[in-house]
Design a protein around this nucleic acid. Sequence first.
DNA 1: GTGGTCTAGACCACC
DNA 2: GTGGTCTAGACCACG
Lengths: 79, 79, 79, 79
Amino acid sequence: MELEIDHEGPVPVYRQLVDSIRAAIESGEFQPGRPIPSVVQLVQTYGVARGTALKALRVLVDEGLVEIVQGRGAYVTRR
Amino acid sequence: MELEIDHEGPVPVYRQLVDSIRAAIESGEFQPGRPIPSVVQLVQTYGVARGTALKALRVLVDEGLVEIVQGRGAYVTRR
Amino acid sequence: MELEIDHEGPVPVYRQLVDSIRAAIESGEFQPGRPIPSVVQLVQTYGVARGTALKALRVLVDEGLVEIVQGRGAYVTRR
Amino acid sequence: MELEIDHEGPVPVYRQLVDSIRAAIESGEFQPGRPIPSVVQLVQTYGVARGTALKALRVLVDEGLVEIVQGRGAYVTRR
DNA sequence: GTGGTCTAGACCACC
DNA sequence: GTGGTCTAGACCACG
């Protein structure tokens, strides 16, 4: 998963997060059925706002790459 | 009854227990009037916390698949 | 809503919470569509453990007196 | 609550326990709504068998002096 | 802030 | 041995 976020550039931060996480999933760094970093971890690691991390999560859910389970976390979709 | 619990995956642990026990009942592995594994056995076998095993039990009782006999254990409902 | 929980008495603590909240609903103290005290408030106000407060909540939900809105809280059921 | 049990005499041990506990209730030593000593405590304090302590408890319940709440303990009946 | 999940430990009566 | 109750703490997504 890429480590740098460009807060100044033209690409929305949440988009950068989405692309970064998607790349990590497609590369196999994040395995199906395994958790992706929690919202809190994303916030701390990338220095983004909570809302930004949540927005990125929503996009990934809409794309079917990630599933949310309440009380447990966000996971890479199996299949 | 399935032997593996995925503590890292998206499915809540107590749900995995419920599904596993229900499958064993429906397959006939656990017969009506016969006991299902005790809470302590579930804890030891699957490495889950007591509260988690009890929560699974409660769901099965609510579904009518299992009934509790105090001091004796949990049994597959007859009928 | 009654203010005293008897931790030494015969009635299970979660049951006392259920009875207390139900009484407040039926008396109109807690109005339909309005929130009931949060889990954290119950914990702090009555000196009970989180699990105990959640157990009481679950009973009220099962009885149809209360409904949960995720991320917002527990509300008295309308109707 | 009396401290001596006569294991050799003609009075059944469970009866001696019953009388002892009843006396403690009637004297106010054990208050209504408060717990009486647990089965384990009776066993340890008086050196009686578990079955004996349980039998004494049953008699007290039948007499309406004590009420049992599963998971919590035995309590002096209110009123 | 909210409730949901989970762990680890304790004590209880009952069989 | 059995399940039921309770505490104290943790982490999660969601608003």
